[in-house]
Amino acid sequence: MELRRARPADSPAIRDVARRSLGASYSLEPQAITNAIEEWYAEDRLATMLSDPDRVLLVADDAGQVVAFSESVVAAANTATLLWLHVDPAHRGKGIATDLFEATDEELERLDVLDLRGRVLAENEAGNAFYQDHGFRRVGTDTVEIDGRSYVENIYAESEQWGREAIDAPDGHSVYVDHDNHERGSLAPFHVVFTTREGDDRYGYFCSNCNTLALAMDSMGRIECETCGNVRKPVRWDAAYL
């Protein structure tokens, strides 16, 4: 089994693995899966992702056949997020997921990443158990749109928590900046902000460049601070930003 960086020629296999993996792991309609694959892994979008220095796509190549892949994005300084780890259902149970996860972690370390986060849909029991078995703990939640419907993602982290800091919102109420949950911006990281210290409800984002709240985020995960212009790239690819 060869674990390597994805190449443009791997695009059809990546789409096939993602389609079969999503179908086996989630209760999604076939058309929803097809639409999601075309949205996230179309030929031109994969080409752009492969050329993006902040994106890491690794594949597991079994004698010339791609049977799994991981998709990661470098977020805030020294932080990266593993967005997806897909294994073809016909090749599960062989330890490929663990091997690919470790290879991904090593590749990110070469990019000076010290803190790895993971995202997995809340309904994927095996995926959540995978992170827990590898010493990660759930530190928050987010949402992802699949074919126009929102799904809850659990966010996992491996480092010690720094805590949540209370700040005043414009309406005078306290909200809580999560220093353990941040994303890279064009000027400085964005931190997730919750309405309670326990992190039950999302309020918005905190721009660490100008120390203001940034509430605007589109469905692809693009955040823009209206005060200083700090921008986070879309987490999932949207043709408007290619």
Results as ranks from 00 to 15, higher is better:
99 D>S: 15
157 A>C: 08
137 R>E: 14
200 D>K: 11
90 A>R: 06
155 I>R: 03
109 E>Y: 09
106 E>F: 04
100 L>D: 05
190 F>M: 05
158 E>I: 04
145 E>K: 13
167 I>Y: 04
187 L>M: 07
149 R>P: 11
154 N>Q: 10
142 D>V: 05
208 S>F: 06
180 D>R: 02
167 I>E: 04
128 N>R: 14
146 I>G: 12
102 E>N: 10
187 L>V: 00
118 G>W: 01
131 Y>N: 06
134 H>P: 01
191 H>Y: 06
106 E>M: 08
132 Q>D: 14
172 G>V: 00
141 T>A: 14
112 D>P: 08
168 D>W: 01
138 R>Y: 02
97 A>N: 01
138 R>H: 04
110 R>F: 02
109 E>L: 11
113 V>D: 12
175 V>H: 05
135 G>N: 02
165 E>D: 08
158 E>G: 15
179 H>W: 05
130 F>L: 10
129 A>Q: 14
98 T>W: 03
140 G>S: 10
116 L>P: 04
209 N>L: 06
119 R>Y: 11
204 G>S: 03
167 I>S: 06
114 L>G: 15
99 D>W: 02
97 A>G: 13
151 Y>R: 09
126 A>D: 14
156 Y>N: 04
134 H>Q: 04
104 T>G: 11
166 A>N: 04
124 N>V: 05
176 Y>E: 02
107 E>K: 06
92 R>G: 13
146 I>H: 12
110 R>I: 00
135 G>Q: 04
164 R>T: 00
198 E>G: 13
96 I>W: 02
92 R>Y: 03
206 F>N: 08
147 D>T: 01
140 G>W: 00
198 E>K: 08
110 R>E: 12
101 F>C: 00
99 D>Y: 07
159 S>E: 11
199 G>N: 06
159 S>P: 07
160 E>A: 15
190 F>P: 03
110 R>H: 07
101 F>M: 01
143 T>Y: 09
140 G>Y: 00
98 T>D: 12
112 D>S: 15
127 G>F: 01
115 D>L: 02
193 V>G: 15
171 D>Q: 05
170 P>V: 00
132 Q>A: 12
197 R>K: 14
116 L>V: 02
160 E>Q: 10
157 A>M: 04
172 G>C: 09
124 N>Q: 11
179 H>M: 06
130 F>M: 12
183 E>N: 13
135 G>V: 00
91 H>K: 11
108 L>T: 00
146 I>S: 13
178 D>I: 00
167 I>T: 05
168 D>Y: 03
193 V>W: 08
108 L>C: 01
195 T>R: 15
89 P>E: 04
176 Y>K: 03
90 A>D: 15
142 D>F: 06
124 N>F: 10
174 S>V: 01
132 Q>C: 11
202 R>C: 10
105 D>M: 04
203 Y>F: 08
171 D>C: 02
201 D>T: 10
141 T>G: 14
154 N>R: 12
132 Q>T: 12
204 G>H: 02
135 G>R: 03
106 E>H: 10
143 T>A: 15
106 E>R: 13
196 T>C: 15
95 G>D: 05
199 G>S: 10
196 T>E: 14
127 G>S: 12
201 D>A: 12
147 D>E: 08
100 L>R: 00
201 D>R: 07
157 A>L: 00
203 Y>K: 03
163 G>E: 02
156 Y>W: 03
102 E>Q: 10
192 V>Y: 11
